[in-house]
């Protein structure tokens, strides 16, 4: 089976600092892949490389969509979104002055085409598209359970709802792969349970998920496969049980010597 995203020997250097060193792993279609590691391991850097915010210093990213494989490293974030890679941010980045609905409507940007002239003339095509944008946005808002807040200001939502709105926004771009950067951070147990259900629903909707998460209980519960980074290198890959028992992983998290203790 061809992987959805092939990460092949990615390195990223910031000046003298190697944030990622020759990291290779695959994301397989239809899975929830957990990307874990201690703070500063390079997880978010990896996300930023995949999402196009950073250009990898070396290595290849190969994304497969509709049976076609494309080398995608160094493409701009908007191109990645267009290809079908969507993301959320570690520290929520909503358009906070806009309404909940508008946040999601903006995400329909890359799937719609109306330009200046169509917008000013308000052609039949443009009106149909606007309706489609609202309908699709509402669908995704209902999907994450925020439909009834559609016309509220994004900043008025609770923290957990803001995280879910970010997910709805990412989903509205119709991705094949969704990158979630610490989605459970700051959530209470009830919100976390809802998040688990939501991630499963996303998977059922045909979107593969890759997530960074520090809540180990959550990660072990929902991920079939984990990739562990430490100091920018990949130190383990496999099922939750294997990874948990891997001495290198224990060492990375708990410090040298802990594995033998």
């Amino acid at each position: 089976m061809t992987p959805l995203l092939e990460i092949d020997g990615i390195s990223k250097r910031f000046g003298g600092l190697l944030a990622l060193t020759d990291v290779s792993f695959n994301v397989i279609e239809g899975e929830i892949l957990g990307l874990i590691g201690p703070n500063g391991a390079g997880k978010t850097t990896m996300f930023n490389c995949i999402a196009g915010v950073y250009k990898p210093t070396s290595g290849n990213l190969v994304f497969t969509r509709d049976e076609k494989s494309l080398r995608i490293n160094g493409r701009k974030p908007e191109k990645m979104t267009e290809l079908g890679i969507a993301r959320t941010f570690q520290n929520i980045r909503l358009f906070s002055a806009l309404t909940v609905l508008d946040n999601v409507r903006i995400a329909r940007h890359c799937r719609t085409t109306s330009n200046f002239f169509r917008s000013v003339l308000r052609t039949r095509f443009q009106r149909a598209e606007e309706k489609e944008i609202v309908d699709a946005s509402m669908r995704w808002l209902d999907f994450v359970g925020l439909g009834h807040h559609a016309l509220a200001d994004a900043s008025s939502l609770s923290y957990g709802d803001q995280r879910r709105l970010e997910i709805a926004r990412a989903l509205a771009t119709e991705p094949k792969l969704l990158l979630l950067d610490e989605p459970a951070a700051g959530m209470n147990p009830r919100e976390t349970r809802m998040l688990v259900d939501l991630i499963h629903a996303i998977l059922d909707a045909g979107v593969s998920v890759m997530l960074i998460e520090h809540d180990m209980k959550l990660v072990m519960k929902i991920c079939k496969r984990l990739v562990v980074l430490d100091h920018g290198t990949l130190i383990a890959e496999g099922g939750p049980k294997e990874v948990r028992e891997n001495p290198q992983v224990i060492e990375a998290y708990l410090g040298r010597g802990a594995a033998h203790a």
């Binding site: 999402a51 196009g52 915010v53 701009k76 974030p77 908007e78 990645m80 979104t81 267009e82 969507a86 993301r87 941010f89 980045r93 909503l94 358009f95 906070s96 002055a97 806009l98 508008d102 409507r105 903006i106 995400a107 329909r108 940007h109 890359c110 799937r111 719609t112 109306s114 330009n115 200046f116 917008s119 443009q126 598209e129 606007e130 944008i133 926004r169 990412a170 771009t173």
Partner: peptide, 23 residues
């Protein structure tokens, strides 16, 4: 319109706008 919304997105948060597919 789609145009106006793209502008607001840029004003509010350029990085988030880009990740919504706005060039």
């Amino acid at each position: 319109s789609r145009l106006g919304r793209a502008w607001y997105a840029i004003r509010e948060d350029p990085l988030a706008a880009a990740s919504c597919g706005v060039n």
